[in-house]
């Protein structure tokens, strides 16, 4: 789980959450922050893979990317996202929009996440 939930600008480490996020979207972000990356002991949010979460009257769109385009977990990570958000009261549908702009890079990892990865034996 992430310790730093402060919104930052796109391209900076952390989470690209737009200003003025509704409390409901914050709740969804927090849930996504509980989904582990299957390869690395941090969450999808900590990995900087979630670019945006938007709610429009219960229709939720998650904009996300992958560090590796050939990720073997491509489908089941998306299943995890849907499984986490779909049961939430107030969520009617979950749409995942895979995007590649901006391209993911290690610059999206916060110092805290980098330290967590180093402690797990992952070099950056």
């Amino acid at each position: 789980m992430s310790a730093n939930m402060t919104p930052v600008d796109a391209g900076e480490p952390g989470f690209d959450r737009s200003e003025g996020n509704a409390a409901f979207e914050e709740e969804l972000w927090a849930l996504l922050d509980e989904i582990p990356d299957p390869h690395i002991p941090v969450s999808l949010v900590e990995m900087g893979m979630i670019y945006d979460v938007r709610d429009e009257d219960g229709d939720v769109t998650v904009e996300m990317t992958f560090p590796c385009m050939g990720c073997p977990a491509y489908d089941f990570i998306q299943d995890d996202v849907r499984s986490m958000l779909r049961p939430v009261p107030g969520v009617e549908s979950v749409t995942i929009d895979i995007v590649w702009d901006p391209v993911w890079s290690k610059d999206r990892l916060t110092p805290e996440v980098r330290e967590k990865m180093r402690e797990a034996g992952i070099s950056l």
Binding site: G70, Y74, W100
Partner: peptide, 13 residues
């Protein structure tokens, strides 16, 4: 091979 399969997935999309 894995990279190329990933590229194909996105181009097919």
């Amino acid at each position: 091979a894995q990279d190329e399969a990933g590229h194909v997935r996105q181009l097919f999309r």
